[in-house]
Nucleic acid binder design. Structure first.
Lengths: 231, 231
DNA sequence: ATATAGTGTGTATTTATTACACTAAGGTAA
DNA sequence: TTACCTTAGTGTAATAAATACACACTATAT
C-alpha cells in the first residue's frame, strides 16, 4: 500500500468477557484495577498482546493467567478502537467472550498477581466499569444471545452432568425470557444432542431430576443443524 | 494493568470486503497491489488507520478514497492478527464488510492513487489474494450469509427500485441455494417491509415486473422482527 | 401421614413451511 | 396481426413446527 499518510503504531490488548453460571445466576468475571488509570475500578480482565503472539493465543494466555483454566470455549467478537477509549493514548482492544464451568469446589487459581482481585459478578448488577468495558460487555451479551439460539454454547457453562431444568434456566437467563417447560424439553430432546444418564440428582429434598450430558459426537453428526428458541 | 510483559506497539490497518450486485452476479471489490509485498497481487482494499481516527471512521474514509462513495452500509466483523500474516512484521487488521448499490451509469471515482486499479470480481471466481485476504473474504461471506437471514441487509445491494425476482436472485446468490418463487414472494410480502410502486420495469422484451422499494419506516416499526429463509 | 417442592408428561390449536404448475402480460420476429 | 418467446404472477393442500395449557408423581422433611 502507498504511504500517503504516515503509518503509526499503537498499543493493543485483548479483553475477555468471561461468563460463568453459578447458583442459578449468570455471572461475569471482573478484576479490581490496582494500576494507573481507573485505579480501584472494576474492569474486564485484559492484557497486552505480545510481539510474537497471535490474538487467539493471547486471549487463551490471559484467561489462563487469571483463572488457571485452559481449553476453555472462547470466541473473538469485536474490536474496539475509539480514539479516546484509553486515557494513556491510542489503545485498540480485541474482545473475546469465554464460557466456563464454575466448579464451586475448585477455586480459580490465578497465575499472576493482579488476578488476585478477580471476582464473579451477577450480570444484572454490574458496577460501573473502567474504560469502555461496559460497552464491551453489552456487545458480548448481544453476541451470546444470538449465538445461543443456533449453536450449543450453553453447555459450556454447565457442569458435565446437568438437569433439563438447569439447562432451561440458563437459556432463560441468557435470553432474558421465560420458556415453557414442556415445550423446551420436547424440543431439546428432539434435537438428539443430549444423552440421558442412569444417574439422578443427589442431595435435593424433592424428587430428584434425571441427569443428562451434552453429546458432542451426535451434535457434530448433525452438522450445522441449528437450534432455535423463541418462546 | 501491571506491566509484567513489556508493551509493544503494532501497526494496524482496516480492510474492507466491499460487496456489489451487478448483472445478476455478486461481486467484490479488489485492488491490484502496486506496492512492496505481494506486488501485482489482488488484495482487499485496506489502509493504515490514522492516529486520531476511530475504526469506523477509518473504514468509511478508506472506502471513500477508493470509490468516492459515502454513507455506505458497513459493519466490522473480525480482527485478524496472526503473527505471520504480514511479511513486514506484526500488522493487525480490523475487517469490515460493506454493501453498495452498483449503479452501472455512474463510475466509481477513486480519490487517491492506488485505487485506480480497483475492479469488481465475481465472488465465485476470485484470484488468489495477498496476505490472508482470502481468509478474510471467506469469513465475510459467512457473516453476511447469517446476517441476511435475519436482517434486511440485502436491500443495500439493490437499486432503490427493484423487482421481487431481483431480490430473490440476490438471496439465492448469497445463500447459495435455490428458493421457491411463490414461497419467497409470499413470505417477503408478508413481512410488510416492501412498498409496491405504481411503476413497472422498463426496457425488457417480456412482461415487465412490478417495482418495489424497501420501506425503512415499516421495518423500524417492526423493531427486531427478523427475517428468515430456509428453502 | 402429610406437607412441600420440583419433576415429568400429552394433546389440541395455531402458525409456518413446503411442494407444486399454470395463465397473464409484454415484446419481438415472421 | 399473429404466433412465439420469455418472464411475471398467482393458490392450495399437506406437512411440520410452535404454542398454550394442568395435573399426577416422587423424594424428602417434619
Amino acid at each position: 500500500m502507498q504511504e500517503i499518510v504516515p503509518k503509526f503504531e499503537s498499543i493493543f490488548t485483548v479483553d475477555c468477557v468471561v461468563f460463568g453460571f453459578d447458583e442459578g445466576e449468570l455471572k461475569v468475571l471482573l478484576i479490581e484495577r490496582n494500576e494507573e488509570d481507573y485505579t480501584g475500578w472494576w474492569a474486564l480482565p485484559g492484557y497486552y498482546v505480545q510481539q510474537d503472539e497471535g490474538l487467539d493465543p493471547a486471549a487463551e494466555r490471559i484467561l489462563y493467567e487469571l483463572t488457571g483454566l485452559r481449553d476453555i470455549y472462547m470466541e473473538q467478537f469485536y474490536a474496539f478502537g475509539d480514539v479516546d477509549r484509553h486515557p494513556q493514548g491510542r489503545v485498540i482492544t480485541v474482545a473475546y467472550f469465554a464460557m466456563i464451568r464454575l466448579n464451586p469446589l475448585k477455586e480459580l487459581k490465578p497465575v499472576i498477581n493482579y488476578a488476585r482481585k478477580a471476582f464473579w459478578h451477577p450480570i444484572n448488577d454490574l458496577p460501573k466499569l473502567a474504560f469502555d468495558h461496559t460497552q464491551i460487555f453489552e456487545k458480548s451479551l448481544e453476541k451470546i444471545r444470538r449465538k445461543i439460539s443456533y449453536q450449543p454454547i450453553a453447555f459450556e457453562l454447565l457442569p458435565e452432568k446437568f438437569t433439563l431444568t438447569q439447562l432451561q434456566h440458563l437459556y432463560e437467563l441468557i435470553l432474558n425470557k421465560k420458556l415453557d417447560k414442556r415445550n423446551f424439553r420436547k424440543k431439546m430432546l428432539n434435537y438428539g444432542i443430549l444423552k440421558e444418564l442412569d444417574e439422578k440428582q443427589r442431595g435435593v429434598s424433592y424428587r430428584a431430576a434425571t441427569l443428562y450430558k451434552f453429546d458432542r459426537r451426535k451434535y457434530a453428526r448433525l452438522f450445522q443443524k441449528e437450534l432455535s428458541f423463541s418462546k
